[in-house]
Computed example of a mutant assay.
Amino acid sequence: MALDPLTMLTLTVALAFAASLYQAIEWRTVREPSLLFWSAGFALISVGSTLALLRVSGLLLIGIWFANGLLVTAHWLFLLGVARFRGVRLSRGWYLIFVAWSALLLLPGEQIWSKVILLLNSFLVALPTLRASLLLRPRDKSLGAAAAQLRYVLLGHSLFYFAKMIPPLVPGTLIDLSVFGGTIIQISLVEGVMAIMLIALSMTGTVRYRRERQIERLAARDPLTGMYNRRALEARAPRLLSEASPARPGALLLIDIDNFKLVNDLHGHAAGDRLLITLGEMIRVVLPGGALAARLGGDEFVILLADASHERIVALGDVLRKRFHDNANQHFATPEPVTLSIGVSTFDQPPASLVALIEQGDVALYESKRGGRNSIRLADRSLMSQAAAGA
């Protein structure tokens, strides 16, 4: 099959329609709004390419001006989709694209019309595409291989359209949009088919990567407090545990809320949930760099410290105990004080397992509870006396 303009346009119609349908189906699965913008963009390319076929019937206004206007709009929708994906708000100036395109109707004469419309069309496609590419630059975290591919495909696509602006400026260059005359037009049709395939695949891969990362984060987080759950702690702890040495000992702090049941019984389970969320926020605030924290379940939390000196453990536990007691005492009246008991397990070499370390911390936590609560204990030896003595 010869790669003549009509054949290439027919391929473009089919590929763009398939890409639009695929993005719409993908949206039904992941509900990512950017997919709707991209799906609409491909749909407009499919419609615009269909209208472009009408040039051979002499319908130049529809086959050239309107068809290329849809191409510009499609790339504007691609930009909106990328902006939505990245959480960026575009300025209203981008809507001037349509004003600039509408001004082409005022051009007199057909000889200059083909060159000017190609020049402006190329610019109005290249500009939003370049902006979309720049929005996909990685910031704090990588967006994944698909996003990187999409970024470079969009960049290459925009540079191609910027290059298309050169032929109309060269005197004597053949450009006749009514009959697809001119080498640059022939090349554009081929590039368009390739771009549709690459952009569509990259867009879908980008959204899927984000969705997979979101699922991973949800699986690793406690739904109430947003802290790591036990599974996530077990996956991340080995690196920290392996760094332990006599010069840089580690410590595990097992934290339990004293008299937590009183809060649930007297104020309701919603109040108990708020108290758990509050403790989680407090732990995040005081957590040193390089440390790990998680909610093991119920009212039990754990902190895993690296380079944990005696003073550091005591200071951290003291801050948590005081802040938590003050907050609980202010918001929840109970017959007995709602406080924290903390059991500590230290290690100066990689322990046998995280489970063994938690079991040792549980022994120390039991000693804290039996000793009157609101204290920090290391096995059978007190790191800190009762709250009254430590105040």
Score class of each variant (00 low, 15 high):
Thr339Ser: 02
Ser91Gln: 14
Gly226Tyr: 00
Glu191Lys: 12
Gly109Gln: 07
Ser245Ile: 08
Leu198Ala: 11
Met165Ile: 01
Ile376Ala: 14
Ala271Gln: 02
Ser102Lys: 09
Asp273Arg: 00
Ala389Met: 06
Arg28Leu: 15
Gly192Glu: 00
Ser345Asn: 00
Asn374Val: 08
Tyr22Gln: 10
Thr278Val: 10
Pro238Ile: 01
Ser385Ala: 14
Leu304Met: 00
Ala19Arg: 07
Ser91Asn: 14
Arg55Val: 02
Ala67Arg: 05
Leu155Glu: 07
Val207Gln: 01
Trp101Met: 09
Ile184Thr: 06
Asn121Gln: 13
Pro167Phe: 11
Gly63Arg: 06
Trp113Phe: 14
Thr334Lys: 05
Gly205Lys: 01
Ile376Lys: 03
Ala83Pro: 15
Pro337Met: 06
Ala147Val: 08
Asp4Phe: 03
Val190Ala: 13
Asn329Lys: 15
Arg295Trp: 00
Ser202Thr: 14
Gly87Gln: 01
Phe332Lys: 03
Ser39Met: 03
Asp326Lys: 00
Glu234Met: 13
Ala16Val: 04
Leu143Glu: 14
Gly290Met: 05
Phe17Gln: 02
Gln23Trp: 00
Thr7Ser: 15
Leu143Cys: 11
Trp101Cys: 10
Ala270His: 01
Gly290Tyr: 07
Asp307Pro: 04
Val193His: 00
Arg239Ser: 14
His267Ile: 12
Ala306Val: 09
Ala364Lys: 06
Arg381Met: 04
Gly58Gln: 10
Glu26Val: 06
Leu189Tyr: 07
Arg274Pro: 04
Pro128Ile: 01
Gly343Tyr: 12
Val82Cys: 09
Ala40Trp: 10
Leu254His: 03
Asn68Arg: 09
Asp307Gln: 04
Glu110Thr: 08
Arg89Asn: 08
Asp176Leu: 03
Thr129Tyr: 01
Ala315Val: 02
Leu266Lys: 02
Arg312Ser: 13
Phe160Pro: 15
Ala126Leu: 03
Gly280Thr: 06
Gln186Asp: 15
Leu252Ser: 10
Ala18Ile: 12
Glu367Pro: 00
His325Leu: 14
Thr339Glu: 12
Arg31Met: 15
Leu118Asp: 04
Arg295Met: 00
Arg377Ser: 11
Gly182Met: 03
Leu124Val: 11
Ile62His: 03
Ser46Arg: 00
Ile166Lys: 13
Gln330Glu: 12
Leu136Asp: 08
Val319Asn: 12
Ser242Phe: 07
Val286Leu: 13
Ile25Ala: 13
Glu300Trp: 09
Glu212His: 02
Ala388Tyr: 11
Leu130Asp: 07
Gly181Ala: 08
Leu120Ser: 01
Phe17Trp: 08
Gln330Gly: 11
Ile112Ser: 05
Gly361Leu: 12
Pro223Ala: 07
Arg28Thr: 08
Arg55Asp: 08
Gly343Asn: 06
Asp273Val: 05
Gly268Ala: 10
Arg236Ile: 06
Leu36Ile: 13
Ala219Thr: 10
Phe162Lys: 04
Ser142His: 13
Asp273Leu: 11
Gly181Glu: 05
Arg230Cys: 09
Ile257Cys: 01
Ala132Ser: 04
Ser34Glu: 09
Pro337Gly: 01
Trp65Cys: 05
Pro249Gln: 05
Glu281Met: 08
Lys261Ser: 09
Met1Cys: 15
Ile25Phe: 11
Leu224Gly: 12
Ala291Ser: 12
Val207Trp: 08
Gln330Lys: 15
Leu35Asp: 07
Val179Met: 15
Glu359Phe: 01
Ala83Ser: 11
Ala200Cys: 01
Ala391Lys: 05
Ser242Gln: 10
Ser46Tyr: 10
Ser202Trp: 06
Lys369Leu: 11
Trp94Arg: 07
